Computed example of a mutant assay.
Amino acid sequence: MRLATVGEVAATRIAQHCEVQAHARWFEFWYYPVIQSDKPVTEVAIYAREITAQKNG
């Protein structure tokens, strides 16, 4: 899933967000294309953080 998301963000140049449950913990991921004018996207920055407390609270 995550590798496919990276490919899609690179191809579309549009950031994406998702929330993933892993066992009893939750994480959110933001995928951002690294954009350089007039060049294809070759890098995607990923921001991740645990959000278990927010999901349970």
Rank of each mutant, 00 (worst) to 15 (best):
M1H: 07
M1Y: 08
R2W: 01
R2N: 05
L3V: 06
T5R: 04
V6N: 04
V6H: 01
V6W: 01
G7K: 03
G7H: 04
E8C: 02
E8G: 02
V9M: 04
V9E: 02
A10C: 11
A10Q: 09
A11F: 02
T12Y: 04
R13F: 02
A15Q: 11
Q16A: 14
H17F: 15
H17W: 15
H17Q: 07
C18R: 12
C18P: 00
C18M: 12
Q21P: 07
Q21R: 15
A22V: 15
H23W: 09
H23P: 00
H23Y: 13
A24T: 15
A24C: 10
F27K: 04
F27R: 05
F29P: 03
F29M: 10
F29Q: 03
Y31G: 02
Y31F: 15
Y31E: 01
Y32I: 08
Y32R: 05
Y32F: 14
P33Q: 01
P33K: 00
P33V: 02
V34M: 09
V34I: 11
S37P: 07
D38Y: 07
K39C: 07
E43N: 07
E43V: 06
E43S: 09
A45E: 09
A45R: 11
I46R: 08
Y47H: 10
A48Q: 12
A48N: 06
E50I: 11
A53L: 11
Q54S: 10
K55N: 00
K55Y: 01
K55D: 03
K55E: 02
N56W: 08
G57K: 07
G57P: 06
